[in-house]
Simulated assay, not measured.
Amino acid sequence: MTLSANVRGYALILAVTVVTSVALAAVHVPSPVLFGGLVGGIVHALTSPVPLTLPPRVFRLSQAMVGVIIGAGISLSSLSAMGNDAVAIIAVTLGTVLISLGAGRILALRPDVTPVTGAFALIAGGASGVVAIARELGADDRVVTVVQYLRVLIVLITMPVVTALVFHPDHGIGSLDTSNPSDLGQSLAYVVLTLALGLLIARLVPITTSILLGPIVVGAILVSTDWFDAVSVPAVLQWLAYAFIGIQVGLRFTRASLASIARMLPVVTLIILGMIVATAAMGSLLAVLTPVDGLTAYLATTPGGLFAVLATAADSGSDVTYVMAVQLVRLLVILCLTPLLARVLSRRAA
């Protein structure tokens, strides 16, 4: 009886995940498969008396796969292109992190949000990575998931408006190179090697985020070599990783938690809009401290939506490499600081 109920439960989750993912992809919602898995897990959690959970090994592999995906997009040459602007970029990055933490602290004024949850729900950058490790850091991953991707969605909506009204750039100057010259065999070899070495590092380094940082470091090193130049993780593997993470989070929802998160969305939206304004000020500061133009600096400090940001930079003739470098620096700083932030915030709360 239990086995049959489990099978029906997984079938329901699979069906809802697929249908929702396709629908969200059609309207260009970011990370549609992660959201689809989230909805699939929520539907089962709210409609079935039979509790389900993913095996810990499956979830851990999914976390590591997110690190593999991020590592494939890190270009060491882009990071080295920062040159003499490194000090200014790091200063602006830390300023953006402080803005995120301030926004998280405001959210944590609500009695149903802890300081750790507030911080990681609104930390600006690496949404998929933060979601993947939120619960292990002591945060409520349900709140973190919803708020993180609401932030990304609002950034994607406001960015073209700000770009057009404030900077008035020409369009069609360039295009983002999304070609992938590597074959499937090379990409699979990259995934296997990065995953194996990354998991080994995660086992040897007793840090919560090592499950992400290990594959990221290995991946970044491999893609900088001649053997694995311009590889990408096959889409099916990306879908599986994001779906499992979304499902795991969705299965932990209850009617009470869903209602609580829905009630906080208006406040969260206002906080996110405030963050966007504050990070735009960081972009203005970067334009003053460095030789880059205002639009490039704005896009480099936009808190989310990396691929849309890069596409906008290419279309408007901005410095895509510079934008990529600043965004990557913030991503790496956030993933490195999250364990320390979790410990500090937990101690303060205690």
Rank of each mutant, 00 (worst) to 15 (best):
residue 106 I to Q: 03
residue 123 I to H: 02
residue 114 T to G: 09
residue 169 P to A: 09
residue 139 A to P: 14
residue 130 V to W: 14
residue 166 V to H: 00
residue 166 V to R: 02
residue 111 P to K: 13
residue 118 G to A: 09
residue 143 V to K: 11
residue 110 R to M: 03
residue 164 A to W: 01
residue 113 V to F: 05
residue 150 L to V: 12
residue 122 L to S: 03
residue 152 V to I: 15
residue 150 L to Y: 06
residue 156 L to R: 03
residue 127 A to D: 03
residue 107 L to F: 02
residue 158 T to I: 05
residue 138 G to I: 05
residue 114 T to P: 01
residue 109 L to K: 10
residue 162 V to D: 01
residue 141 D to Y: 06
residue 139 A to Y: 12
residue 172 G to Q: 10
residue 154 I to Q: 04
residue 125 G to I: 05
residue 150 L to H: 04
residue 155 V to W: 03
residue 165 L to K: 01
residue 119 A to G: 09
residue 140 D to W: 11
residue 142 R to D: 08
residue 160 P to I: 01
residue 109 L to I: 06
residue 131 V to F: 08
residue 115 P to R: 15
residue 161 V to N: 01
residue 128 S to G: 14
residue 167 F to K: 04
residue 117 T to Y: 08
residue 126 G to T: 10
residue 110 R to K: 07
residue 158 T to N: 00
residue 155 V to E: 02
residue 146 V to A: 15
residue 154 I to A: 03
residue 110 R to D: 08
residue 141 D to G: 15
residue 134 A to R: 15
residue 145 T to C: 13
residue 138 G to Q: 11
residue 109 L to Y: 03
residue 138 G to P: 08
residue 165 L to F: 06
residue 123 I to R: 02
residue 112 D to F: 04
residue 120 F to S: 05
residue 140 D to S: 12
residue 127 A to M: 12
residue 116 V to F: 08
residue 147 V to N: 05
residue 121 A to S: 15
residue 137 L to A: 14
residue 152 V to W: 08
residue 150 L to C: 02
residue 138 G to Y: 09
residue 108 A to D: 02
residue 138 G to N: 06
residue 151 R to T: 08
residue 160 P to C: 01
residue 138 G to C: 12
residue 129 G to V: 14
residue 155 V to Y: 02
residue 113 V to P: 05
residue 162 V to I: 07
